[in-house]
């Protein structure tokens, strides 16, 4: 039952971000087979080869998340307006899942702020917000961030987002 909600929430987020869906290729409507981990379609965001560090300073590539549904969001920890709401929603959703369900999904939070949101700061943020173990908070280069933002079709740059609030 809870999984039904997960699917709804997931599709809402993916539509919201307009990111080519992670595990399935939407162009292949007739071929609805589930992807196995490691397979990457031509339309997938996993084609991005960018390198990231998570809140534990572990090296990570987006492809590493393949095989499980991902809820991806972008924010930065110095943000005081919409970001606490976003993270709050994600957290309460995560907390509502059973342990088994928690293992079946990844929550990927990409920071816009490559400079200030170091893995160390992301770790602090993770602890402060008591985010569970399926959360991956990512720090990457401005270019890697822009690539994801551009796929999400959000009109975002540091200039327009971060500087406004700080």
């Amino acid at each position: 039952m809870k999984f039904k909600y997960l699917t709804i929430a997931l599709s809402m987020l993916l539509i919201n971000f307009n990111i080519p869906v992670f595990a399935k290729d939407h162009n292949n409507h007739h071929e609805h087979k589930e992807m196995k981990g490691g397979e990457v379609t031509s339309k997938s965001i996993y084609q991005l080869d960018s390198k990231w560090l998570d809140q534990n300073s572990k090296k990570i590539k987006l492809k590493d998340f393949s095989g499980k549904p991902v809820i991806l969001t972008m924010l930065y920890t110095g943000c005081t307006k919409s970001c606490p709401i976003i993270i709050g929603h994600l957290k309460s959703f995560y907390d509502s899942l059973s342990n088994e369900e928690k293992n079946k999904v990844n929550f990927v939070v990409v920071s816009f702020d490559s400079k200030r949101d170091t893995p160390k700061n992301l770790k602090k943020f993770t602890d402060k917000n008591k985010l569970g173990k399926s959360f991956y908070l990512l720090n990457g280069s401005d270019d890697s961030i822009l690539e994801i933002a551009s796929l999400s079709r959000k009109n975002l740059t540091k200039e327009s987002i971060i500087n406004k609030e700080l």
């Binding site: 933002a149 009109n155 975002l156 740059t157």
Partner: peptide, 8 residues
Amino acid sequence: TYDFNNSV
């Protein structure tokens, strides 16, 4: 341009 999606 690099940040073509900057201005809306």
